[in-house]
């Protein structure tokens, strides 16, 4: 029962947090900023509308939003929010889930190519390239976690007696992992400095340009999927910062969501104070993230 409630809270609250990022960015710019619930309003507006489809497109274009949203929801079923055991979990689910996210990406890219637009093709090419690198970075983190607690499932990483967190026996290494994962989060969810969700020039976009031709409820599904994906990565980091305390699910949920807010605030601050990287520097950026977690593995080898 607890699991279902935790899942429900997560599913409903995910669109709230990107609002926090916007608020932070507005604060830095000295503006008032949109209301916190702005993303809910956007979703509601999109759901009310109809759609315009390009004559170039086929059913693959309509599959894109469906698959990417379903993939993101699938991940939520396996995630132990606030250390509460998730609905489902098995040894190896971490690999499965990152591949499920992979199929969401596959169809997003295919849908972008389906529109016959040169800009969307360019976005898809960039997404394919950068995603490959960040996937490698994520798997290095999984390798490290396997070294640390011998498990391969999200539930075993973040709940139970052997949860991985900064307070654990190898906490120092996790500092590296947190920085690395934060960099991967920014890259995978198309945030500054890799991609700018607020940019207006199609040539410089990555994720936004792939979904240019989607409209109405389709666009809402895509947006929802990307909120969930961002929420998943942020929750991953939040769980690393602190494992659940011995205080019952309610206090844990409170702790978890405050840490999560902190992660989103950190994203907002990063977006406000850093500039976009040049496109040819993005691979180096993701490789740095890869190097950090790889480095953490080397340190586990026999040294510490």
């Amino acid at each position: 029962m607890e699991s279902i409630i935790a899942l429900g809270i997560a599913l409903i609250s995910a669109p709230l947090f990107p609002g926090i990022i916007l608020k932070i960015k507005a604060l830095f710019a000295g503006k008032k900023g949109p209301p916190l619930l702005i993303k809910y309003y956007t979703l509601a507006k999109l759901l009310r509308k109809g759609s315009v489809y390009s004559t170039s497109t086929t059913f693959v274009f309509r599959m894109g939003p469906i698959v990417s949203c379903a993939a993101a929801v699938m991940v939520f079923l396996f995630f132990p929010f606030a250390g509460i055991p998730p609905l489902l979990s098995f040894h190896g689910d971490a690999v499965v889930l990152f591949y499920i996210l992979g199929i969401g990406r596959f169809f997003t890219m295919a849908a972008a190519l389906d529109t016959a637009s040169p800009f969307e093709g360019m976005g898809a090419a960039r997404e394919a390239f950068f995603a490959t690198l960040s996937e490698a970075a994520v798997f290095v983190v999984l390798i490290l976690f396997y070294r640390m607690n011998g498990s391969l499932s999200l539930a075993a990483y973040f709940s139970g007696p052997h949860a991985i967190s900064l307070a654990g026996p190898q906490g120092a290494l996790l500092l590296l992992v947190i920085v690395s994962l934060f960099m991967t989060l920014l890259a995978e969810n198309s945030r500054v400095p890799v991609d700018d969700p607020a940019t207006h020039l199609e040539l410089t976009m990555i994720h936004e340009v792939m979904i240019l031709d989607h409209s109405g409820p389709d666009l809402a599904l895509i947006e929802l999927g990307s909120f969930y994906k961002l929420f998943f990565y942020a929750a991953f980091i939040a769980c690393l910062i602190s494992s659940p305390i011995q205080a019952g699910p309610f206090a844990n949920t409170l702790l978890f969501y405050s840490l999560l807010t902190a992660v989103y605030v950190a994203i907002g601050i990063t977006e406000s104070i850093t500039a976009r990287l040049k496109m040819n520097l993005v691979p180096k950026y993701i490789l740095t993230s890869f190097a950090l977690s790889f480095f953490a593995i080397i340190l586990t080898m026999e040294i510490f």
């Binding site: 693959v60 295919a110 190519l113 798997f139 390798i143």
Partner: peptide, 25 residues
Amino acid sequence: IIALAVIGGLASGCFTKVIGVVFLG
């Protein structure tokens, strides 16, 4: 493991290319 992850990512890039360029658009 890292090689498999890289292969997986590149393979999906490769086959989105085939699907996208040959069959879509």
